[in-house]
């Protein structure tokens, strides 16, 4: 608490003139600035494709084709996102947002909890070994995870069905209509399972950065471990948690395509449980003979705009309560 007080006191008033500090900091960040200009800002003119019927002009290059050879088409490229039947459109938005909300909550609660618990283990060796193992799923692509899931859920040879039969129960056709009610849980589980190790790292590094004297003082004051966690660890993790939250909210209209498409194997019977915006776009555009850059660009732009709105809203709400932790 005292730290924040100090900083507010120390914060200097806005100066109108450039100080030596400003110049030094500017130079320090210059290489990164150049990187952002070259790899992010220069290509940004590509957003125009979303509003044009892009048509290449032979031998003229991209810019000429885009500016002179392609007609403006307003929002035509966005239509295909809504041209499916009502059922699919609703399922698509429901799944995208619904799963994301669950993933955001679990993606914070579980890693934070595990990061705190792991710092309490007596055996540091055990902690290290377990942490390494928890990280392993992150290295496997969703395609490989898809095979792994299939080994469990295959109708005939799958492990789960063999166990069910062994217990005298009826086998389930997991990838067909029978399996539909289970898939939301499977998907949530897989997402947590694959990402928990990765997400834990940020929180573990933050816990590691906490000033040890705070705990020492708390111990002298007779605080229990539970109280220490509640009054020291979590408040000090708060800025990181909030930033992770805000950034996740900005991607609420995006989805991890591999998770939804590869593990369900795009099985039609499960469509209702896994179709998200990205899956829908992929199913419409992949391998298409008509050039699809305009459509893909439109879909991406829509995700960006909605993401931007939710992010700015979330940021505004956060900064109302805690200005220090907010994004801007």
């Amino acid at each position: 608490m005292s730290q924040t007080d100090k900083t507010t006191v120390l914060q200097p008033k806005k100066k109108s003139k450039l100080t030596l500090d400003d110049i030094q900091l500017f130079l320090l960040s210059l290489p990164t600035t150049i990187w952002f200009i070259m790899f992010c800002y220069v290509p940004m003119f590509g957003i125009l494709i979303a509003f044009k019927k892009y048509k290449v002009a032979p031998g003229k290059g991209f810019l000429w084709s885009l500016v002179y050879n392609s007609k403006w088409c307003g929002l035509d490229n966005f239509k295909f996102l809504f041209s499916s039947n009502m059922k699919t459109t609703i399922a698509m938005f429901r799944n995208t947002i619904g799963y994301n909300i669950i993933f955001i909550v679990l993606g914070i609660v579980i890693p934070v909890a595990l990061a705190i618990i792991i710092s309490h283990l007596y055996s540091k060796k055990l902690a290290k070994v377990c942490q390494t193992m928890i990280f392993l799923p992150h290295f496997l692509s969703w395609v490989i995870v898809g095979y792994f899931v299939y080994a469990f859920l295959a109708t005939k040879e799958g492990l789960v069905n063999n166990i069910l039969i062994g217990m005298g129960l009826d086998p389930v056709k997991w990838y067909q209509k029978d399996g539909l009610p289970y898939w939301p849980y499977i998907l949530v589980f897989l997402n947590v399972w694959k990402n928990v190790g990765y997400n834990m790292i940020v929180y573990m590094a933050s816990i590691n950065g906490i000033d040890g004297s705070l705990y020492e003082a708390a111990v002298i004051d007779g605080a229990s471990k539970h109280q220490q966690t509640k009054y020291i660890t979590i408040p000090l993790l708060k800025p990181v948690i909030i930033i992770m939250f805000i950034m996740a909210v900005g991607r609420i209209f995006n989805s991890d395509f591999g998770l939804f498409y590869r593990t369900t194997r795009n099985s039609a019977a499960l469509y209702d449980a896994f179709v998200t915006l990205d899956v829908y776009v992929y199913n419409s555009l992949f391998n298409s003979t008509i050039p699809t850059y305009g459509y893909a660009s439109a879909a991406g732009f829509m995700q960006s705009v909605f993401g931007c709105i939710t992010l700015v809203t979330a940021n505004a709400i956060v900064s109302k309560f805690d200005k220090e932790s907010a994004f801007f």
């Binding site: 952002f36 070259m38 790899f39 992010c40 800002y41 220069v42 290509p43 940004m44 003119f45 590509g46 957003i47 494709i49 991209f62 810019l63 950034m247 900005g250 850059y293 893909a296 660009s297 991406g300 732009f301 960006s304 993401g307 931007c308 992010l311």
Partner: peptide
């Protein structure tokens, strides 16, 4: 840039 990108084609050209 976290939210808005030029897309594959524009990046490719650049």
């Amino acid at each position: 840039p976290m939210l808005f990108r030029g897309g594959t084609l524009a990046s490719y050209v650049v």
